[in-house]
Write a protein that binds this DNA or RNA. Structure first.
Lengths: 198, 198
DNA sequence: TTGTCAACTGACCGAATGTTCGGTAAACAC
DNA sequence: GTGTTTACCGAACATTCGGTCAGTTGACAA
């Protein structure tokens, strides 16, 4: 009766989760298309065929990774704090949350940001990402319409620059350097909202 | 005596230059590793083997493209305007020039920004790019030391955010949308230097 | 001790990859 | 017209690719 189907002590080895997290690491190092199943096998310490015991294939591995990134963004968009209040405050909240998601799910979001649309899996992910971008774009326009953003720059340009900055974090952020998600978000918001110059 | 070795009217076809520019376009659409020589051949309207009449191979095509981007950045760093005057003004000039180079050589710089280091060619390019990054990093530190940048953000973080923003332009800029290099640089400098909020 | 089963190996498959090569048609030089 | 050069094609090359499958191993239950 005790622990009938529970996960007891496994005799060391992989599971779908460990395969995914290691695979995503390699995808980010070499690029998805630049990564062979042989590369993954080497990183996992097993042979190629062992991978297929845990996951259906390379593209499904990518799909699961992209979903992790996109699910985070979807949850944020659905949050009440993204829907009510002054647009500029919602924008600030969304920027801060975006940075948090990017940092928390760094490898998954990094992968998402590099997707080009070379397969159905990638195209589906790009489509979900475009929905997020449209949400942001709308939010910036609202903030501009409410007079909270300087009127001498096109809101569309503001959107791209602001979230270009957020997304660029994926290119350099390393948790080992000590800066937390909030540290980065604070610096980003200071720069973008009130400016760097003294 | 007239036009002995000059380029006269070619009977339409490709040359190394046209192959390069079309190839770089495809590389940016699908990613370098995601692009096959067959893909390039299709885009060029010839067979795979015809490509090898004009260029030595796929990797050399990449190398030439990356050099175009890096040469632009090297020229800028060597310019006198990057060396003398208040650091904050040099920084502003370098940001503006970086945007100009990125826009002028958009496909080449875009390619450079996506290089992961999967081959010797890519590693050499990454090394040159790191030199540029070090130059920028030093410049920001100077501006901070001169008291021109708000002291409550780490200069290293400022460097990454500022040039993360510049580099992110490659992800969305389309000349057909009408914005010039200076338009983008103006908006970027307004945001980063004096802030978006009214 | 035997049987079960999760986790894996090694040999292999067909397709796709980057590249080479022998040949060739059209444009040009003379 | 003849010879040369330019720009290409089609077939083949070795290699690598993602993926399959029949078997093996070792921990564990009975």
């Amino acid at each position: 009766m005790a622990t009938p189907t529970t996960t007891r002590q496994r005799r060391r080895g992989h599971d779908p989760e460990s395969v995914l997290s290691i695979a995503v690491g390699v995808f980010n190092e070499r690029g998805y298309d630049g990564t062979s199943m042989e590369d993954l096998a080497r990183a996992l310490g097993v042979t190629k065929s062992a991978i297929y015991y845990h996951v259906p294939g390379k593209e499904q591995l990518l799909g699961r990774a992209l979903d992790r990134a996109l699910d985070g963004l979807s949850e944020m968009v659905a949050d009440e704090r993204a829907a009510s209040g002054p647009a500029i405050e919602r924008l600030e909240w969304v920027v801060r949350q975006s940075v948090r998601i990017l940092v928390d799910r760094l490898p998954y979001v990094t992968l998402l940001l590099r997707v080009r649309g070379n397969s159905r899996t990638e195209q589906v992910a790009l489509e979900r990402r475009r929905e997020f971008d449209a949400f942001i774009s709308h939010l910036v326009k609202e903030a501009a319409a409410e007079g909270s953003i300087r009127p001498d720059v096109d809101p569309a340009l503001v959107t791209r620059l602001l979230f270009g900055t957020v997304n660029s974090i994926a290119d350099w952020y390393q948790p080992s350097r000590g800066a937390s998600s909030d540290d980065v978000a604070d610096a980003l918001l200071k720069m973008a909202f009130t400016g760097l110059r003294v």
